[in-house]
Amino acid sequence: MEYMTVGEAAQHWGVTERLVQRLCADGRIAGAVRFGRSWGIPASARKPQDPRRESATLDDAQQAKRQPGDYANLMPLLNAAFEPGHAREFVDSLGAGPRADIARAELFYFTGHADEAVALANLHLSSDDVEIRLSAHLIYAFANLPLGNIDGSRRALEGALSALERSSLETPQLRAAQGFISRAASTLLHLKDPEDAPDVIDALPFLPPGLRAFAFYVQAHAAYLAGDHARSLGIAETALMGADETYPIPAIYLHLVAVMDLMALRRPTEAREHLLCAWELARPDDLIEGFGEHHGLLGGMLEAVIKPGWPEDFKRIIDITYRFSAGWRRVHNPATGDDVADNLTTTEFTASMLAARGWTNAEIAQHMGVSPNTVKSYISSSLRKLGITRRQDLGRFMLA
């Protein structure tokens, strides 16, 4: 029998090596054999399903309600299972037409080209096809954030929800789409949930795998923002383990929210594993937008891992960070009443975020690969810019 290593299985399944080792130790992978301190895994082994996902799977009655071709036009690239490095090949395979335009707009957005994404999405904001129209509104909303068009972002998401309300919501598929979009809007852009919007958990069985995985990311992100880092991490790792195929874009975002949680829980070694998993999925297709969007929440992991090995990519990620964060804060601060810092450099924000979580200067320095005096300088500069004098007050300006 041919075996693969833990590392090979982790890469093949899009999860961390630690998770594969745990599955082996729990007897969840048939035929896995321990060799010393590691494991040999049958080359034909399939990634086991997580039993915690039972509530999110379709029973026979629900399967009967699904129609062939559901969601064929809704965020086709996000919903695509492809091997890393083949995103453009998938998009090109769609030829021409609205579905191809939406997929290209997605690719533009996730590779950090927001202006091109907005231009393509704008062509289909009034499409007669509800899935094309919803996709266009979603892309238009998020791509306008780094362009500073906050009103356009809000109007686009409100338009998506309005389009769903005007459609027949008697079908479970459209109700599921409403639940997904309303939760994404409330979590990521602070729009108010419609009073009759379905719970996103109830919607999960009716979403296709790619959107379902991204909905798990939204749920995990909401738990993170609520300070429930253990629950958020559980949601992310459950979703990653339960996917039968590789859906690179949702998987990237799930790995990133896991990094956020693990850094909040002060488990940087595991956070590094998740970040590298996300990077292995993203880099072949240049899907770097998510790294820029989440920079401030990743606790210096980009500086510690990406900057030394891929300095040019790191520079582009930081450029995305500045553009996206400027737009996001213009939404977040007024909507929440918080005052997340908007005048710090990325390194100042990272050092201050970790300091707000109780890290010492020496710990921050070791993590970021700089000297303790440099960290002290970052934090002193942050205190001065924020108009405060005590390190303890940094938490008011961080998403810590």
Results as ranks from 00 to 15, higher is better:
L188F: 14
A100I: 08
Q63G: 06
A80W: 01
I306C: 15
S135D: 10
Q219I: 15
D319E: 03
E2T: 09
G69V: 12
Q21S: 13
T389R: 15
T246G: 06
G112M: 11
S44N: 08
T374S: 10
R390L: 13
E293I: 15
P209C: 11
R166G: 03
D199N: 07
G387C: 11
A87E: 00
I102A: 13
L254C: 09
F90T: 05
L23N: 12
A282F: 05
G85Q: 03
S38M: 06
F108W: 12
S182L: 06
I181C: 07
R212V: 09
A103D: 02
S352V: 12
P172G: 09
S153K: 02
D115G: 09
G159Y: 02
I181T: 11
E17W: 08
R323E: 02
A61F: 04
D70K: 15
F214E: 04
L383I: 05
R272E: 13
A25Q: 12
S325D: 13
P334W: 00
D92C: 07
A223L: 11
R166C: 11
G327R: 01
G97W: 04
A43H: 06
E363M: 05
D193F: 13
G179A: 06
L344E: 00
R330V: 03
G296N: 00
Q21E: 14
A163W: 06
M260T: 13
C277E: 13
G290D: 03
R330E: 08
